[in-house]
Design a protein around this nucleic acid. Structure first.
Length: 523
DNA sequence: CATGTCACG
DNA sequence: ACGTACGTGACATGA
């Protein structure tokens, strides 16, 4: 079938074609002529609903598909599809093709009822799929030897901490078991219960341990052990095991239809949650390296969601701050505290930064108070002062809530629709959650649209100019490239230009780059 | 498979 | 009185 598969004039449609492209590529076949993907149609039409074929067949066609487990079984007794009896395999595969076409015939018209959705589908999601396919195949080079050394160090230190913990607790226990920790803390040692989990058990999360560590020795030991355990099991032990023996690199999968806001997600392994916030964790990034003769270039959007808030709300003070290239948190602090920007103290700037982040998430006075460690009344006061100074933002938030309630969805700048099924729920906490999501979704979603457009532009440029530079990761507001040393100066100029120029908003977009032999240096 | 926890933007 | 910042994925435990 190669000649048909590779013929761009023969149109193809499928469900999650990025997967099929990988299978074909593994066998030296380059799938061409991709015109439609029902996974992406469903995602653009109804991002909050399931996109698996069985569920969609029932939802759109009222049709019950042959369950995969009926054909191949499950668990230890599962067989591979190539072991299925041919007649049965034919029936299953035939249905698969038939249903895909019928889903396409049902969903594409729904997408095309709306010009914005059509654009998101054709100009963003479909091209993004092909970019993601290339990024996934490129993979990332990992210094496994370095991670092995780190694993050894972590393991040694963890064993020391275990002994200390046993002494403090008066006997051995499993440090990885919240249940056993609870029994020792709140039973045996009689420590106070700070908060409870969703199921009513006493919590032993980081916040609780920090609080208890003020008065007792064991929580501190546990905190250090937890941090190391996380690094070791999730990263230093695991990443070397994920290296593909054929390519010598790690190949993540980007899920393009999971996050209801339009963001990507990364899995097996997740390369979007590699530690960065503290020095110990950041060492993991030293193991994300460039091939010989290459460097890692990282480019990230500066304050992308706040810029989008300024654009969407049209708030004059915020637009002005960005237009003049000010430090946005400093400018915010100056407004809230009623002083000149150069009079802002570092503590005041920190407050303003927490408020700015909180706004993006639809914060309450309670949340702000908890985050700043201040009284709720004081937090309410800051919010009030903020909204007095940034009245456009206040108006945007109120309008967004009303719009979400009236229509059941909100939109990104590019017209991506973000549905909020619980916006009119009689359940108060659920409704409040949907209201916060309504505030956040247009900003997070527009940022997702922008970086997808940037990825399409960057990949288009790399191919048009036949460069050796490869895109290797996306982390929501950051693109990571592996660059031949000879192309470094070119990439350092062109990459941020493309990212910043991908759309003309009422605020300037800014992308900042870093370079290094590894991801830590480049960040 | 649910739960608790914690890594990221 | 309740619950409380948005969006993800992965791990270990334990039923």
């Amino acid at each position: 079938m190669r000649s048909w598969l590779e013929n761009p004039a023969k149109p193809k449609l499928g469900q999650n074609l990025k997967y099929d492209m990988h299978i074909f590529a593994n066998h030296g076949v380059t799938l061409k002529g991709i015109v439609h993907d029902t996974l992406l149609q469903s995602y653009v039409f109804e991002s909050h609903k399931p996109h698996d074929m069985d569920t969609m067949a029932m939802r759109h066609l009222g049709y019950t598909t042959i369950p995969y487990v009926d054909v191949c079984g499950k668990g230890a007794k599962q067989i591979c599809f190539d072991q299925v009896e041919l007649g049965r395999a034919t029936e299953y595969a035939g249905e698969d093709s038939d249903i895909t076409l019928r889903l396409h015939q049902s969903m594409l018209p729904e997408v095309e009822k709306d010009a914005g959705l059509t654009r998101i589908y054709r100009e963003i999601e479909m091209p993004t799929m092909e970019v993601l396919h290339k990024i996934e195949r490129n993979g990332v080079l990992i210094d496994s030897a370095l991670l092995d050394v780190q694993s050894g160090e972590l393991g040694k230190r963890m064993m020391e901490l275990e002994q200390q913990a046993y002494e403090a607790a008066g006997g051995p226990f499993n440090l990885g078991s919240p249940k056993q920790i609870g029994e020792i803390f709140f039973g045996k040692l009689g420590l106070p219960v700070i908060k409870k989990t969703a199921t009513g058990a006493p919590s032993t999360d980081e916040e609780v341990l920090q609080k208890l560590a003020e008065d007792y020795p064991l929580p501190k030991i546990l905190l250090e052990h937890r941090g190391m355990s996380k690094l070791k099991s999730t990263y230093t032990d695991k990443l070397p095991k994920m290296v593909n023996p054929n390519t010598g690199r790690v190949h993540t999968n980007y899920s393009q239809a999971v996050a209801i806001t339009g963001r990507l997600s990364s899995n097996e392994p997740n390369l979007q949650n590699i530690p960065v916030r503290n020095a110990e964790g950041r060492r993991i990034r030293e193991a994300f390296i460039a091939a010989p003769g290459h460097v890692i270039v990282s480019a990230d959007y500066s304050q992308i969601e706040l810029r989008i808030m300024a654009h969407i709300s049209g708030d004059a003070a915020m637009l002005k701050a960005f237009a003049e290239g000010e430090d946005i948190h400093r400018a915010t602090a100056a407004e809230i505290f009623g002083i000149a920007p150069d009079e802002v103290q570092s503590e005041q700037r920190r407050y303003a930064k927490v408020i700015n982040f909180g706004l993006i998430y639809g914060m309450s006075a309670f949340g702000l108070a908890a985050n700043l460690g201040i009284e709720r009344g004081a937090a309410a006061n800051y919010i009030e002062r903020y909204f007095a100074r940034f009245s456009g933002v206040k108006q945007y938030m109120d309008n967004t809530r009303l719009e979400a309630k009236a229509r059941g969805y909100v939109e990104t700048v590019f017209g991506r629709r973000l549905w909020l099924p619980e916006i009119n729920s009689p359940n108060g906490p659920r409704r409040a959650g949907a209201e916060r999501a309504a505030i956040n979704a247009p900003m997070q979603g527009t940022a997702a649209d922008l970086i997808k457009l940037a990825m399409i532009a960057v990949q288009g440029w790399l191919e048009a100019d036949k460069l050796g530079t490869r895109m290797i990761m996306q982390v929501h507001d950051e693109l990571v490239l592996e660059v031949p040393e000879g192309e470094l100066e070119l990439v350092r100029v062109k990459l941020p230009e493309l990212m910043a120029g991908v759309a003309k908003l009422d605020v300037p977009l800014l992308a900042e780059t870093g370079v290094g032999k590894n991801w830590d240096e480049a960040h």
